[in-house]
Nucleic acid binder design. Structure first.
Lengths: 194, 194
DNA sequence: GATAATAATTGACCATGGTCATAATTATGA
DNA sequence: TCATAATTATGACCATGGTCAATTATTATC
């Protein structure tokens, strides 16, 4: 019962992704229409859904790839020494994620995998972010009373919170990063006096 | 330019909300259909959208009201002394929020207000949660190096994170609360040894 | 190379949220 | 009480994502 994937199918799928990526580059994520994609790819509508469970699945794929580009860039940098540098490293990615409300919604919706065996592209980038950030934290001047993985998970939680509040009111991106900084200082370099 | 709202309009709106609430009680949030609501309310489809910007706006209203019931219950309790008690206080609300994937998505989508002047029902409950939790934290045995409001915002960030990961894989709710506990211990009672 | 088996594609059709010009109702005021 | 304005309701219509039985293309078998 092994399904033999034909070359034709691989090409069709690639064409759909390419066409969709181009459309997004031109008009933004939220403006993408399935009809438009299949028309420009020269296939029928049903073909689209034979390749992707739904429109969201394709978006997840594309956004996941975009996030990975930012993570590549982040990974290429030196480990941050302090909170300020950590924020600088994450800034481009956070700006991308909040560049369009639609993007952020898709990301949040897919930040957790549906099934353990089948972890989606965006959930994968969350895992990868944890890896990268925890490796950074292990090298920097941060608290040592809890594991760096836990700290990295917290960084992610605060990043999501800062981004969610970014869409609140007329907050601009600079405010978002400031808020993020306040969180991280309290999280990564606490000085409790109970 | 003051719009005079007629009694008829108020009644129609109330009927739509009541009918929708009943339908949700019977079949769950995600199964709600606008067609069904207008049919049972005895009005035309267009009327629905004259009263609510979109289906999401009604959902926000109803879910916001439900959250407020949980907050009422939480507020009636004594302030928690430690992390365990804090989690106990928040447990029913978090269980509700994760009871249906659809509910959580709606909540996250509306956790930030669109405009400062017009803060939505769910965003209001987030504010209220911050108030309640920060008041609790001020009274309990928690770190004092940062403001209780900041700590409360962190509690919320970690709650969202724990809930998002809950949908990941086959994690059950117990695991969610355990994860939440780990976060909160590190956040609220740090013992750094830099 | 004929035939059977499997994979891939098709497009008419459906489900459902949302729009808007028009009609019906209610308030206003002389 | 009637004319006029303002408010509310209507439902045909549209936009768009998604389904599925039927069809076509490819591969395997002899």
């Amino acid at each position: 019962m092994i399904k033999q994937t034909q070359k034709r199918s691989i090409e069709t799928r690639a064409k759909l992704i390419r066409v969709a990526t181009e459309a997004i580059a031109a008009n933004g994520h939220s403006a993408l229409r399935v009809e438009e994609v299949v028309k420009n790819a020269g296939v029928a509508k049903g073909t689209f859904f034979a390749h992707f469970k739904d429109k969201d699945a394709l978006m997840e794929l594309i956004i996941g790839a975009q996030i990975n580009e930012y993570l590549d860039a982040a990974e290429a940098m030196t480990a941050p020494d302090d909170v300020d540098e950590l924020i600088t490293r994450m800034r481009p990615l956070m700006n991308f994620m909040t560049g369009e409300r639609y993007i952020f919604d898709v990301i949040v919706r897919h930040s957790g995998a549906a099934v353990k065996e089948e972890i989606g592209p965006i959930a994968q980038t969350f895992d990868r972010t944890i890896e990268i950030v925890s490796a950074w934290i292990a090298q920097g001047q941060f608290r040592k009373d809890v594991s760096e993985v836990l700290l990295a998970e917290g960084v992610q939680a605060f990043a999501v919170q800062a981004m969610a509040l970014h869409f609140c009111a007329i907050n601009n991106q600079e405010e978002m990063h400031l808020r993020f900084k306040t969180y991280l200082q309290a999280w990564l370099t606490p000085t409790p006096t109970k």
